[in-house]
């Protein structure tokens, strides 16, 4: 069981590291555009387009990590008014629901990537980037998020209602 959690944590961390790398690359790309245009009268030609891909990639790749860290917010009004068992059941339902949604999103994005590849969809930009490539990155991010939610759900079931901490909110630093 421990190996299971450790592996998933590692994967989420890896996602976060990739996300940070993409963030750095995006910043460097935009700075290069500024430098090229200002000093060399030239252009990367892709800064607008690729900063869009970079944003999508860095957000999705960071989802698993940020979910584990409790960065994603929710409304706690009802939960706090329930007892320990009620809280546990509701938490279980919420997490399971999130898992289903996240899993469905993976399937849908997977289909989108396949269609984009099969149809040779390209961006309407000078680079004519095949869209399945950046789309595959967001698929990876969603898969990591789904794994992380599965881990959370497993942990919740394993610990049971007795161990549930009634947290004030999910967003502690």
């Amino acid at each position: 069981m421990n190996v299971f959690f450790k592996t998933i944590n590692k994967i989420s961390d890896l996602g976060a590291i990739l996300s940070a790398v993409v963030f750095a690359l995006m910043t460097i790309l935009l700075l290069s555009e500024v430098v090229l245009r200002t000093f060399f009268g030239s252009s990367t030609e892709v800064s607008g387009e690729y900063s869009g891909y970079a944003l999508a990639a860095l957000i999705y790749l960071g989802l698993g990590f940020s979910f584990r860290e409790g960065a994603h917010i929710r409304i706690t009004f009802l939960r706090e008014r329930l007892g320990r068992t009620g809280y546990f059941i509701l938490e279980l339902l919420c997490t399971a629901f999130a898992m289903v949604l996240s899993g469905l999103s993976c399937i849908f994005i997977w289909e989108m990537v396949l269609t984009s590849k099969a149809r040779n969809l390209v961006a309407y930009t000078p680079a004519e980037t095949p869209l399945y490539i950046p789309q595959a990155l967001i698929l990876v991010g969603m898969i990591i998020l789904t794994l992380q939610i599965i881990a959370q759900l497993t942990a919740l079931i394993a610990r049971g209602p007795q161990a549930v901490e009634i947290a004030d909110s999910g967003a502690e630093d």
Partner: peptide, 22 residues
């Protein structure tokens, strides 16, 4: 399903939002 995945992709494939994390 198609509208769903399109929305997940198109909403963040957006140069104007790239400023936010920076």
């Amino acid at each position: 399903a198609k509208i769903w995945s399109q929305a997940m992709w198109n909403s963040l494939n957006n140069w104007a939002l790239a400023a936010l994390p920076m």
